[in-house]
């Protein structure tokens, strides 16, 4: 691919999705977009590139953006965040929301659904503690194609063995031919919606817990800042934000601060978080 075409895709991805395409990822264009070119009837990727310089079909652009997003995920990915959800977030919410009995969770960039469904399974296992609660899990992604997969909730033998304990497979899945499908009791706990984090996200409403893991790594600094700022506006005062292991808010978003001693967990800076006791020195400098 020539440099001009690389820049064409780079700019398109940046504007439409915030995705930053670095030259070392140029090889992805060939492997992921050749099938898209074929789908739209072009003899080659180069031919599609030429057509994109005119007035491209917005559906074609959407296909390109979707093909370039990374959908890597697994059940209980990285383990630790789900432990924190159980040991820190849930106890806090059980206490603080005991009057309203409402818990709203958002998985931004949910890919094929493993993250919101992992949370559903955790909540199902804690169901006795949460009787009468209204739990809403909203899961969004930029890719409509991957959202369809997520709604279907059917996973390969390989996918159900990465991170998922066998007891949960036995309890929450049905075997359908060669794959495994989540039971309806888990599927119905999650509402899937299309959402581009660069666009208006206020329609999603406000949340008590936000999972936005391994999303920011694909954005440049300015986009990270914008997206974190928008997410902050959707969060309740004493809510929690989970980021991926290689991500942080430090030096990027003023709205958040890391929760002390809880790696990957962030809270709003101006929150009166009852669980967060600022160290004496920090309190003195306020």
């Amino acid at each position: 691919m020539n440099i001009g075409d690389f820049d064409l895709y780079k700019n398109m991805l940046k504007t439409k999705s915030g995705l930053t395409l670095t030259p070392d990822k140029a090889y992805l264009l060939d492997s992921r977009l050749t099938p898209i070119a074929k789908k739209w009837g072009f003899p080659s990727l180069d031919a599609m590139s030429v057509s994109l310089r005119g007035k491209p079909d917005s559906n074609m652009v959407r296909d390109i953006v979707e093909a370039m997003t990374t959908n890597e995920t697994s059940f209980f990915r990285d383990g630790k965040p789900f432990d924190l959800f159980k040991s820190v977030v849930l106890p806090h919410m059980l206490k603080e929301r005991s009057k309203t009995k409402s818990l709203k969770i958002w998985c931004a960039a949910c890919s094929s659904g493993q993250e919101p469904y992992s949370l559903s399974m955790v909540l199902k296992e804690n169901a006795p503690m949460m009787q009468g609660w209204n739990i809403q899990i909203t899961a969004t992604d930029i890719s409509n194609a991957i959202l369809e997969n997520a709604k279907r909730a059917e996973y390969s033998q390989f996918e159900v063995q990465r991170g998922l304990p066998i007891q949960m497979l036995m309890r929450f899945f049905d075997q359908v031919n060669e794959s495994w499908r989540l039971k309806e009791e888990i599927r119905k706990m999650v509402r899937f919606e299309h959402c581009n984090l660069l666009e208006d996200i206020s329609k999603l409403g406000r949340f008590d817990v936000v999972f936005c893991r391994n999303v920011l790594i694909y954005f440049d600094e300015a986009t990270k800042k914008t997206v974190l700022g928008k997410i902050a506006k959707q969060m309740e005062k004493d809510s929690f934000l989970f980021l991926g292991g290689a991500e942080t808010v430090l030096g990027i978003a003023e709205e958040f601060k890391p929760m002390e001693g809880q790696r990957g967990l962030y809270i709003l800076k101006d929150s009166a978080h009852s669980m967060q006791k600022p160290p004496a020195s920090a309190a003195a400098t306020r």
Partner: peptide, 15 residues
């Protein structure tokens, strides 16, 4: 690795 970690044979990977 994932299965061994789940039953406590090895430490869980931290994310």
């Amino acid at each position: 690795e994932s299965k061994f970690a789940q039953i406590g044979l090895i430490e869980t990977k931290t994310g």
